Amino acid sequence: MDISIIIVNYRSWKPLLNCLESLQTIEDTKINFEVIVLDNFSNDGQFDYYKSKFKDFIFIENYINSGFSNGCNLGAKVAKGEYLLFLNPDTIIAPDTLNTLYTTYKKHPEIGILSCLQVDKKNRFFNQKNLFPSFFQVFGITRFFYRKFTSKALNEKFKIQDDLFYPDWVSGALLFISRDWFKKVNGWNEDYWLYFEDVDICKKISQSKGKIAITCDATIFHEHGGSSRNNFETEHISKTEVIISKHVYINTNFNTLSQLPSHLFLILFIFLEKTFLSLLSLFLFFNLKLKTNRYILSNLCFYYFNAIKKRTWLSQSSVNYQK
């Protein structure tokens, strides 16, 4: 088996349908590939239907919603491919994309992780010129000024060479990696439940002298948020997890001197922002996006209280939380 395509799903059946149908159109290729769908306990009666509809694909049902990292690792354990392609359910892949990723990766042995261009439903390209988070990159205001004053150096860094450019990290929406590299960095970090796990695995590859690359020769459709923010409840939960995962990333990847000030500044900025938006939502009560901030603020109060009590930055949903 050349490639194992691993998709972690949680109640994203409609986008997943389009994704799987696009994978069925991949016929004109000499590459042997399998498709593994790891369902994170959607528990909504759809699993058996999709399993019977796509009989050529492998469906695995998890007993809990263990998060993206754990789901990816579970899929990788049963995968037979020499290469692993982690793919979001809210993506649509063109018939030639798989071949482009495979041939490009083999042509450039210096690459540890490869991805491709992404467009949204308005045919706009995602900005994928990503830098690793640092003290100046974690916060919106400092990130803006950092990029402004280093724009010349960044333009040189992201210069396209041989139809490739090299960001610090790529989105987990599409991440192509050899099994050897995957084993070398011990797979996905299960401290993360949702978000920043893609940044973390790219960081580990980079620290091991592997390159992170994006090919301009392939493009996928990506309905951003279509797999994690499909209703009001998952919206505020997922946005809370973004903040929690920032703390996990800081604790995992920042040096000792910058950890504490980064945690404290993040807490301060988040509380100021969410408190202001929560108060504003009381007046603009018809705006649902503003309303989510009240729930996020409540979630974060519980999280920070628990972080102090348990002395951990991990989300309670992380499989490593109780270890």
Rank of each mutant, 00 (worst) to 15 (best):
M1I: 11
I6G: 02
I7D: 07
S12E: 12
L16S: 04
N18I: 00
E21G: 00
E21A: 04
S22H: 05
I26K: 00
E27F: 01
E27S: 10
D28M: 01
D28P: 00
F33K: 02
I36D: 01
L38A: 01
F41N: 14
F47G: 10
S52N: 15
F59K: 02
N62S: 14
Y63R: 08
G67W: 02
N73Y: 03
V78G: 01
A79D: 08
K80M: 09
L85G: 06
P95L: 03
P95Y: 09
P95R: 07
D96H: 11
T97H: 00
L101Q: 06
L101N: 04
K106S: 07
H108I: 05
L114V: 10
C116G: 03
D120V: 06
K121I: 09
K121Y: 10
K122G: 05
Q128T: 06
K129A: 04
P133Q: 11
F136K: 14
V138F: 09
V138L: 15
F144R: 13
N155H: 08
Q161R: 07
G172A: 15
L174E: 11
D180T: 12
E190G: 04
W193V: 05
I205C: 10
S206N: 11
Q207S: 11
Q207C: 02
I212R: 04
T215C: 01
G226Q: 05
S228W: 11
R229E: 15
E235A: 07
H236A: 11
V242A: 07
I243S: 11
K246G: 10
K246M: 14
H247C: 15
I250T: 08
F254L: 10
Q259S: 01
Q259V: 14
H263D: 06
H263R: 09
L277N: 13
L279V: 06
S281A: 13
F283A: 14
F286W: 15
K291P: 00
L297R: 06
S298D: 10
N299I: 11
C301E: 08
Y304N: 04
F305N: 05
K309I: 12
K309Y: 12
S315T: 00
S317D: 07
N320R: 12
Y321E: 06
Q322Y: 09
K323S: 08
